[in-house]
């Protein structure tokens, strides 16, 4: 059986979808370039977490290698939550979220626009946190495979985080609600990301690392699909 032909109306709808997605991303980046609130707060928080761990653990060189993955992902997860909360709070100010929902576009375009924005901010923070961590803990983190794990982990984290923050933003106690909803759901992702990172940093067998990498990939695919399907229901009053 042949594929269904791509009709002009379908092409038009796809163009409108991508245009709306791009508009949401552009809006988030433009607003952030002006205010520097979100990345700034995430960055300061990330630096502080690393600094606190550095002094609190005062580790020897060997132990440093074993805890690096855990400390890194705790830092990313906590600063990521801060970013997700702020990203949705901006939408709630002046009723902007309603403005987005009123647009005659498939609402998943709004969701993916927000996901891409949150992912971009999270990756920027991670790229700045890594050199600082390398200096403070005297450990080389500039390993291409580690960057792949960070990318996959961040995708899963923002895909789930954006969906849950869209839900939490409707509640009065949104700042408290997001971590309570988010951490149980991202626990498998964090376990896989920590283990994959640890495996790379400590030179584990490739097959062992691949197991955790596969979990990350499957998690990302499943929750991207869940976000795509559920966003419309999550934002409905």
């Amino acid at each position: 059986m042949g594929q269904a032909p791509v009709t002009p109306s379908r092409r038009h709808a796809a163009k409108a979808y991508l245009r709306a997605l791009g508009a949401v991303l552009w809006k988030d980046v433009a607003a952030e370039l002006r205010s520097r609130e979100l990345v700034g707060a995430m960055l300061i928080f990330g630096f502080l977490v690393i600094l606190i761990f550095n002094f609190a653990l005062s580790l020897d060189a060997r132990t440093r290698g074993t805890v690096t993955a855990g400390v890194l992902w705790v830092t990313f997860a906590f600063s990521g939550t801060l970013g997700l909360n702020r990203s949705m709070a901006i939408e709630k100010e002046r009723g902007c979220f309603d403005g987005l929902l009123l647009a005659p576009v498939d609402r998943s375009a709004i969701y993916f626009g927000k996901v891409l924005g949150n992912l971009l901010f999270m990756l920027i923070v991670e790229l700045l946190v890594i050199p600082l961590y390398s200096i403070l803990y005297n450990i080389n983190l500039f390993i291409p495979e580690l960057f792949l794990v960070i990318l996959l982990g961040s995708i899963g984290y923002t895909v789930v985080g954006t969906l849950l923050s869209s839900m939490a933003v409707q509640a009065r106690t949104r700042d408290l609600l997001l971590p309570i909803l988010l951490f149980p759901v991202v626990l498998p992702l964090l376990i896989a990301a920590v283990n994959a990172s640890k495996g790379i940093l400590q030179g584990f067998e490739r097959s062992e690392i691949m197991f955790w990498l596969n979990i990350l990939i499957v998690y990302d695919i499943i929750f991207t699909a869940v976000g795509f399907m559920a966003f419309d229901y999550v934002v409905e009053e």
Partner: peptide
């Protein structure tokens, strides 16, 4: 739709 909130972004 116009509500009592402007539905516009302060940083734009």
């Amino acid at each position: 739709v116009v509500s009592h909130q402007p539905l516009l972004y302060g940083d734009l």
